[in-house]
């Protein structure tokens, strides 16, 4: 079914399609639109190269199902999708579009690690926001872009449920945080010292410690590679596919 769909995306269309062909084309467009709305992902073969677009939105849902008022990205669906993208010979590259408020540390890091380990060209774009655990996700692609109006919040991790006020709790938090610091600094130009400094900044947020970086600041700090929009993302991905970058 999927291969049949993909084939129909690249079939050349006559200039004046017959009525039934027009209906078929409208059906394809409708189906493609529904796929974007429902799954947040789409494989397109109409351009120069066949690429897959994965959108990571809302909360990154982890081992617990979040209440229905949250928009979520489900890791149990995204992880095999990434495997399929890496394995599928027809898909040449992956675009990751992020507009996330963060979420589960382990689920976020799991997706980020898979992305950073992919052989296929990957480019990420932060739109709106790429906060908290969205930061490792944004830097995991081979090249990362951010639009000027987007923001990224860098702040320490928190825990829900019963928290005991003992030294072990602090040590556990430190370890969880260090996993994020290490991944981000290994996959971007920012140093661990500077990232920790941004994370612990007391002068910027009212209810928390941390730093809000806009697009320009995220690039200047070395977290994101470049400022840009969708055209830059496609151009960069095509260059990678064609072996120019």
């Amino acid at each position: 079914m999927r291969k049949e769909n993909r084939k129909s995306f690249v079939d050349p269309q006559p200039e004046f399609p017959e009525p039934e062909k027009q209906d078929e084309k409208q059906g394809e467009v409708q189906e493609q639109t529904e796929q974007i709305i429902e799954t947040g992902g789409i494989t397109t073969g109409k351009g120069k190269h066949c690429i897959h677009c994965l959108t990571i939105i809302g909360q990154i849902e982890g081992h617990y199902i979040l209440p229905a008022q949250n928009k979520t990205t489900k890791y149990e669906h995204v992880i095999p999708q990434l495997l399929a993208v890496e394995q599928d010979p027809e898909i040449e590259g992956l675009v990751i579009i992020l507009n996330t408020v963060g979420g589960d540390v382990e689920a976020g890091l799991a997706i980020a690690e898979l992305l950073s380990g992919m052989h296929k060209p990957t480019v990420s774009l932060v739109l709106g926001g790429g906060h908290s655990i969205g930061v490792p996700l944004a830097v995991s692609a081979r090249k990362s872009f951010i639009v000027p109006s987007a923001t990224m919040t860098v702040h320490p991790v928190r825990m829900n449920g019963l928290v005991l006020g003992v030294p072990q709790t602090l040590s556990y938090f430190d370890k969880m945080q260090e996993r994020i610091v290490k991944f981000v600094t290994d996959n971007s130009r920012i140093t661990p010292e500077r990232f920790r400094q941004l994370m612990m900044n007391k002068d910027e947020l009212v209810m928390d410690v941390g730093t809000v970086l806009d697009g320009q600041a995220a690039v200047e700090e070395g977290l994101i590679d470049a400022l840009g929009g969708v055209a830059d993302v496609i151009e960069s991905l095509y260059a990678m596919i064609e072996g120019e970058a």
């Binding site: 617990y64 979420g103 589960d104 382990e106 906060h131 702040h155 991790v157």
Partner: peptide, 8 residues
């Protein structure tokens, strides 16, 4: 579960 999010 450790959540790292800007949402309270």
């Amino acid at each position: 579960m450790v959540l790292h999010t800007i949402i309270p």
